[in-house]
Design a protein around this nucleic acid. Structure first.
Length: 560
DNA sequence: TCTCTTAGCGCG
DNA sequence: AAAGCGCGCTAAGAGA
C-alpha cells in the first residue's frame, strides 16, 4: 500500500493521507495522519514530496516509518534517466515538481515549532505524480534497476532525516579544550588568538614586513617574493618545498587560521546544541548521487576536531569504512573477474601486488585512482599500462565512459542514474573548433573541454554506482538496527532513538552508529552483513567482496 | 552596503 | 606542455 501524504492543508494533526492500494490508480478517501499511521504496517510505503520536510516533522512527533518514496528525488532521477529518454514523462515541460526541494528548516534558524507546522509549497497532486512515476518506470527500458534505485534513494533520504533528528554526539567541552590547547584562550570576536598572534609576529619578522596581514593572499605573495622566496602561490603544497625561515611559522599560522575560521568557537556556537551537531544532509546533492550537506561543513569534518565526537555515557560509536569501495564497484560494473579476485578477502591494492600486477601498494593505489579520475601524469601514468594489461575489462569500461563524455554524450550508472549533459561551454568550444575562423587556440580549448567532460563521465559511472552501493548499505543498516532490542540505558538522542542504536554520520563510504555499549558487537556484525547484502543486491551473480573495517570507539578520532 | 568570484583548504 | 573526480566553507577582493 502506498500512503500518500498531502501536506499544507492546515490540519493540526499532521498531513492528510491518501492510501493507494497496489495496482490501483485511484486513492481511497483521505484520512488523518494519526489514523493512517496506526493502521499502517511495515510493508506500506509512505509517499511524500520531500522527506526532509515531512519526515522531519513526523520524527519530531516521535514517529518512525519503515519505507518511503520521495517524489521529488525520484522525479529528478527519472526525468534525466537515459532509460526514459523520449518518454512523455521525461519530455514534459518543467512544472513545480521540478523546483528544488524546499530548504529544510535548519537547526539554528528554526527552533522547535509546532508539530507539523511546515511551510510546504503548494504542490500539485502527489497521487497523480506517484502514478505518473510508476507508469514511467514500468514503461522504461530498465524498470527493475530504476525501482531499486528509487527505493534506495528514498531509504537514504529517511536515513538523512533520522541522522539530522538524532544528531552527531558532540562534546563542546572537548572541542573547547582542543581549541584552547592549539590557539590559547578564546579571544574577543575579531581578535587573533594568542598563539596566532605570536606566529604573525614571527612571519612579519622573517619577511621584514612589519604590518603584513598573512590572511591577504596577494599581500602575502608580494611579501614572500620581496623577501626572495620564489613561490607560485601561497598554497601549503608550494610553500612546503621552499627552504626559508618564514615557512615554519607561516604554515603553522595557516593551519591554526583554518582551524579557527572553519571549526573554531564560532562554529560551536552556531552548530552544537544539546550535545549534538545537526547538519542538513542533501541526499544526492551531487550529480553522481553522492550526498551533499549544507551548513556546518559536515562533509569536511577535519580529523583535528573529531576528538569532540564522543559517545554518550554507556553508549559507544561503531565506525565502519567500506575498504577501497570504488575499485570494487568498478570490478562489478565491468564484470572484471580478475579485479574481483584481487579484492577478495582483503585489501584490493595488496591484491594487485600479490597478483604481480604492480610492485607496491602505493603504485597500485595511485594507478587505480588515476584510472578512476582520468589522471595520466606521474606514477599513475606509468602504472596505467600494467593495469590495462591485467584488467582489460575494468580499464576498458572507464575508458569507454570517458570516450562517451568526450563526444558530449551522457553515461549511466549501474542502476540507471544518468549524467547531466555537458554545459553550454562545452558545445560552444566544440563548434568553435569547427568554424572556418577556428584558431589553434579554439581547437586546443575544444580538446581541453572535451577531455574534462571525459574525466567527468569516466568518474561518474564509478562514483555514481558507489553511491548506489552506499545507499543500499545504509538502507540495510537502518533496517537491521531498528530490529535490535531496546537499550536499558537511554542516550541523549530524542525519541524514537533514545533507546535504540542509530546512524549518526555518513560520508560517502563510511558510517558511524551510536549504540549501547553492550551492542557494539551486534552492530559491527550488522555493518558487515549490510555491506555484503548491498553487494549482492547490485552485483548478485558476481563473487565480489565488500570488506568493511570496523572500529568500536568512544571518540570518532580513534577510528583511524 | 551588498553580491559575486577567487584562492585556499578540508573531507571522501 | 600539461592535463585526476566530487563536495562546502571562509576570507579577501572586486564590482555594482
Amino acid at each position: 500500500m502506498h500512503l500518500v501524504c498531502r501536506p499544507g492543508t492546515g490540519r493540526p494533526d499532521g498531513p492528510e493521507v491518501l492510501a493507494v492500494p497496489p495496482g490501483q490508480d485511484v486513492a481511497q478517501p483521505p484520512e488523518t495522519f494519526t489514523t493512517a499511521y496506526e493502521r499502517s504496517s511495515s510493508t506500506d510505503r509512505w509517499v511524500w514530496a520531500d522527506t526532509a520536510v515531512t519526515y522531519r516533522d513526523l520524527l519530531r512527533g516521535g514517529h518512525r516509518v519503515e519505507r518511503a518514496h520521495d517524489l521529488r528525488l525520484a522525479r529528478r532521477v527519472l526525468r534525466s534517466a537515459a532509460a526514459l529518454e523520449a518518454s512523455t514523462y521525461a519530455t514534459a515541460p518543467a512544472d513545480p515538481w521540478d523546483d528544488p526541494a524546499p530548504v529544510a528548516s535548519s537547526f539554528p534558524a528554526r527552533q522547535a515549532e509546532t508539530l507539523f507546522d511546515v511551510a510546504a509549497p503548494v504542490a500539485p497532486d502527489p497521487v497523480e505524480e506517484l502514478l505518473a512515476q510508476q507508469g514511467a518506470v514500468d514503461g522504461s527500458a530498465r524498470p527493475g534497476a530504476l525501482r531499486l534505485l528509487l527505493a534506495a534513494e528514498s531509504s537514504a533520504a529517511l536515513v538523512a532525516a533520522e541522522m539530522h533528528h538524532a544528531g552527531l554526539p558532540w562534546s563542546a567541552r572537548v572541542h573547547d579544550e582542543l581549541l584552547r590547547s592549539e590557539l590559547g584562550p578564546r579571544p574577543r570576536d575579531g581578535e587573533r588568538p594568542a598563539r596566532m598572534h605570536e606566529l604573525v609576529e614571527s612571519v612579519r619578522a622573517a619577511l621584514d614586513a612589519p604590518s603584513l596581514n598573512p590572511d591577504s593572499q596577494p599581500d602575502l605573495l608580494r611579501a614572500l617574493r620581496y623577501a626572495g622566496v620564489s613561490v607560485d602561490s601561497t598554497r601549503q603544497w608550494d610553500l612546503e618545498r621552499v627552504d626559508h625561515p618564514v615557512i615554519g611559522p607561516l604554515l603553522e599560522y595557516k593551519r591554526l587560521a583554518r582551524l579557527l575560521t572553519a571549526n573554531g568557537w564560532a562554529w560551536i556556537d552556531a552548530w552544537v546544541h544539546d550535545g549534538r551537531f545537526r547538519p542538513d544532509y542533501v541526499v544526492s546533492g551531487a550529480p553522481s548521487g553522492r550526498w551533499a550537506t549544507s551548513g556546518g561543513g559536515a562533509l569536511q569534518l577535519p580529523h583535528a576536531v573529531r576528538p569532540a565526537v564522543v559517545a554518550d555515557p554507556g553508549w559507544t560509536l561503531v565506525v565502519a569504512d567500506a575498504a577501497q569501495l570504488e575499485p570494487r564497484v568498478l570490478a562489478g560494473l565491468a564484470r572484471d573477474e580478475r579485479l574481483a579476485t584481487a579484492g577478495r578477502g582483503g585489501d584490493i591494492y595488496a591484491g594487485l601486488v600479490d597478483q604481480g600486477v604492480v610492485d607496491s601498494r602505493e603504485h597500485a593505489k595511485v594507478g587505480m585512482l588515476g584510472a578512476l579520475y582520468g589522471g595520466t601524469s606521474g606514477d599513475s601514468g606509468l602504472v596505467r599500462p600494467r593495469l590495462v594489461r591485467a584488467f582489460p575489462a575494468a580499464l576498458g569500461f572507464v575508458d569507454a565512459a570517458a570516450r562517451e563524455g568526450e563526444r558530449g554524450r551522457r553515461v549511466s550508472t549501474l542502476l540507471g542514474r544518468t549524467s547531466p549533459p555537458p554545459s553550454g561551454g562545452w558545445g560552444e568550444a566544440q563548434s568553435g573548433a569547427f568554424a572556418d575562423s577556428a584558431t589553434a587556440d579554439d581547437e586546443s580549448r575544444a580538446r581541453a573541454t572535451g577531455r574534462a567532460q571525459g574525466r567527468f563521465t569516466r568518474n561518474f559511472v564509478v562514483q555514481g554506482t558507489a553511491a548506489e552501493w552506499a545507499s543500499c548499505w545504509l538502507a540495510s543498516i537502518r533496517q537491521r538496527l531498528a530490529a535490535l532490542p531496546v537499550a536499558t540505558d537511554a542516550c541523549l538522542a530524542p525519541a524514537p532513538f533514545a533507546e535504540q542504536a542509530h546512524l549518526v554520520y555518513f560520508l560517502h563510504d563510511e558510517v558511524v552508529v551510536h549504540a549501547p555499549a553492550g551492542q557494539a558487537d551486534d552492530v559491527a556484525a550488522i555493518l558487515r552483513e549490510s555491506a555484503a547484502a548491498a553487494g549482492r543486491l547490485l552485483f548478485g551473480d558476481l563473487d565480489l567482496d565488500f570488506p568493511v573495517t570496523v572500529a568500536v570507539v568512544e571518540s570518532y578520532a580513534r577510528a583511524k
